[in-house]
Design a protein around this nucleic acid. Structure first.
Lengths: 208, 208
DNA sequence: GGCTTTCGCTACGAGTCGTAGCGTAATGCC
DNA sequence: GGCATTACGCTACGACTCGTAGCGAAAGCC
């Protein structure tokens, strides 16, 4: 999770319960205080551990919050509702529900902002959050191609570009709707959005 | 800009040059230090003003950075290139160019993150940044309807929903591509994106 | 000149940061 | 059981930032 556990064969092992408590305390602090007023001392107190324990496991506030927020996305999965449109709507609604939680709203954008000046942090975000979401797009696309709803893509490089584009469109729209426009990405909105997206995708696939 | 100037008829007027210098210094500090390491003392030194002058004009770091970043979006305008697709591509390329600048990348997302817990800050962002971009969507849409590229929308409420949706899709995709995926929103990417978007929009307009 | 507001400067208490040092607790190896 | 090793809780610390208060000087309007 937060650091290497290469083969610490001997010595007292790190408390897994402490990890759980710290990450939960971080999310709670995000809800109550927000990003800027969150302090590591406060998180340590909430979690019932010493401040030094936090610094032994995480390099700083950024890394800690990334891990705390990443756990929120563990529950994401593509439902099998029978059609591409229904599957996408299902997963986007899940995604929107996570983004509606205050600990995700205040934490996620803050670490993304910090990552513009920290490549290691960007990589950490990619590995623990973005890649997990990207896999959902790949999974849904493969299932739709098996159903015949989307044409198979022979060129793997072109396919990767398309998947990346879809991912930026979906995640970007939901994030912008929720955080910038400040309105809920409810089912009605998701339905309208997915309708336009799919019409565009099948249209583009028909006329390459 | 940052505070009310109701009718300060008498007394020494506030230095407009100081405003310019402070906002420019803020952007420079964003480039060199990023959001989290930016301090108001440092900005004051760079701008050649006293720290107290900063606190007299802005409530804090958030408000200052919003104003500093907002100026970057002043140059945005919809070009008249003859077709809806070309117009949109033109303005999206401009938008992407602004987001590629480090002072926008590190500043914009940070204040958006803070705005999730500060309604006044959210309103400030909306008024000084988001509304300006939203106007571009309205402008381009009206021009396309005059050209006959998009059907006129009789229901104003439905039209507002659609404009909001388009705005979230466009801005969200570009922001996500630039900041989360960390890849440039170059002309090739913009072209692919706009193609899917427009195919979806005209498809949705045809089958309501 | 007189009034008003802004400006630069200094100083201050409060709070946070990240680290060091120490004694104690928990585990693996012999 | 004894020993080495690592994690833990606790305290203390210097360095830094924050936001404010107070002061005299400057720059406008009447």
């Amino acid at each position: 999770m937060q650091s290497r556990t290469p083969a610490s064969r001997t010595g007292r092992p790190r408390s897994a319960a402490a990890d759980t408590a710290i990450l939960a305390a971080t999310r709670q602090a995000l809800v109550e205080l927000g990003w800027s007023k969150l302090t590591l001392s406060d998180v340590a107190t909430r979690a019932g551990v010493a401040k030094t324990t936090l610094y032994r496991r995480w390099a700083g506030k950024n890394e800690l919050v990334v891990d705390a927020v990443a756990e929120l996305f563990d529950e994401l999965e593509v439902p099998d509702l029978g059609s591409l449109a229904a599957d996408i709507e299902g997963v986007v609604v899940q995604f929107a529900a996570i983004l509606a939680r205050p600990e995700a709203r205040s934490g996620l954008m803050a670490v993304v902002a910090e990552s513009t000046r920290d490549d290691a942090l960007r990589e950490r975000i990619r590995a623990s959050i973005v890649d997990r979401q990207m896999r959902l797009v790949l999974q849904g696309r493969a299932r739709a191609q098996r159903r015949g709803e989307l044409p198979p893509e022979p060129d793997p490089e072109e396919a990767a570009r398309t998947v990346g584009l879809i991912f930026d469109m979906v995640a970007g729209a939901v994030v912008h709707r929720t955080l910038v426009s400040g309105k809920p990405a409810d089912e009605e909105w998701v339905h309208s959005f997915i309708r336009i997206l799919l019409l565009g995708l099948v249209g583009a696939a028909r006329t390459p």
